[in-house]
Amino acid sequence: MTTTGLAFTLTWSRPVVLAECDPAGGDIGAGYLRHLELDGGHGLIQLVVAELRGQASEQFWSHLVDLDPPGARRLLLPGIATSAQAASLDPTWHSLAGFFSSLEHGNPGFDVIVDCGRLVTPYAPWPLLGRADLVLLVVKPTLASLLPARAVVQTLLSSAGPADDGRIGLVVVGDGDYDDRAVARHLGVPVIAHLPHDDRSARVLAHGGTARTRRPLLRAATAAEGKVMRSINGRRERLRGPGIWEAVHADV
Rank of each mutant, 00 (worst) to 15 (best):
M1F: 03
G5Y: 01
L6P: 04
A7W: 05
F8Y: 07
L10N: 06
S13Q: 12
P23G: 03
G25F: 05
D27E: 08
D27W: 10
I28Y: 04
A30S: 14
G31S: 09
G31C: 10
L38K: 08
G41I: 03
L44T: 08
A50Y: 14
L52M: 12
R53H: 15
G54D: 14
H63E: 10
H63F: 15
L77S: 10
G79Y: 06
A87W: 10
S88M: 13
A97R: 12
S101A: 15
G106I: 10
N107A: 11
V114S: 13
C116Q: 02
G117Q: 03
R118Q: 05
R118I: 00
T121D: 09
P127H: 14
T142P: 07
S145C: 03
V152M: 01
L157H: 10
A160Y: 02
A163W: 15
D165G: 13
R167V: 07
I168Y: 07
G169Y: 02
G176Y: 04
D179P: 03
V183K: 02
V191N: 08
H194G: 06
L195A: 09
D198H: 14
D199V: 14
V204E: 07
V204P: 00
L205E: 09
G209R: 01
T210G: 03
R214I: 03
L218T: 08
A221K: 00
T222Y: 08
A223P: 00
A223E: 13
A223S: 07
A224Q: 05
K227N: 06
V228F: 06
R230S: 11
I232S: 12
R235K: 10
R240K: 14
P242F: 12
I244S: 14
W245I: 07
